[in-house]
Amino acid sequence: MTVATSATTPARPVDRRPPALGGFSAAVLGIEIRRVLRNRRTLMFTLIMPAVFFLLFGLPQRGQELPNGQPVTAWIMISLAVYAAMVATTSAGAAVATERALGWSRQLRLTPLRPAAYVATKVVTAMVLGLLGVLVEFAVGAAAGVRIPADVWLVAGLAAWLGSLVFAAFGLFVGYLAPAENVMQFMGPVLAILAMFGGLFVPLELLPHAFQQIAKFTPVYGVGQLARAPLTGAGLDWVALGNLAGWTAVFGLGAARLFRRDTTRV
């Protein structure tokens, strides 16, 4: 036994308090956002790929017009912005899968950080990345000559971005369902198929009738329709709105349930 007691160390702290907001802070948010922006894979799939898709599949349609006279390139750009936002928010939400697989979540439970603050950080990070996805896609579109009224840019952009909240919930849901480090390798193809059913790659009108009917019940359909409505002038689509609300509820409640199970599974 040779443990010396240092005379220089201060006495034990007495006034202890828990962190404000359960540990949710702008500083942590900043670190989290920097983390996702440092991840090449995330940037590749959320920012670069949708932009490249636009250049490959959007640009050749230059000069074509929708029935209301708006450019087809804008239609494609908005669809791909929705795609970018959904991949971004899903992957940011699904990051909890990686962190659970690595055991970081367990490490966090030994800190004063509240689980709700952790999830809030993930959701906000997802939404920041989703916004970035929309902005990059729009910037590429604008640079490539897409010209639409200012209010269409704004409303379509907001719809694409805010609608992607459903996928932040989806990502969290999957993240709490499957603690796998490489969850996005599995989720990438799933998102592509959902995007197909959501009419993000090919207009649903060009697809078989049965496909169109099924598509209305899949989770990308609602946000896709709503984001393009300002452009096509389709007005408020109640089916699309119901679809978005329904899936947000399903994934949101599902994620909340799994999250509670995860945190009380002590």
Partner: peptide, 28 residues
């Protein structure tokens, strides 16, 4: 506080970044 057998760390952070991140979870 504890040092556990399990309990992983984030591989994409550096040593200092990990400590800096975790420092924000504490009040003091």
């Amino acid at each position: 506080a504890a040092v556990m057998q399990t309990g992983g760390l984030l591989k994409d952070l550096t040593v200092a970044e990990t400590v800096r991140l975790a420092a924000h979870f504490h009040a003091q």
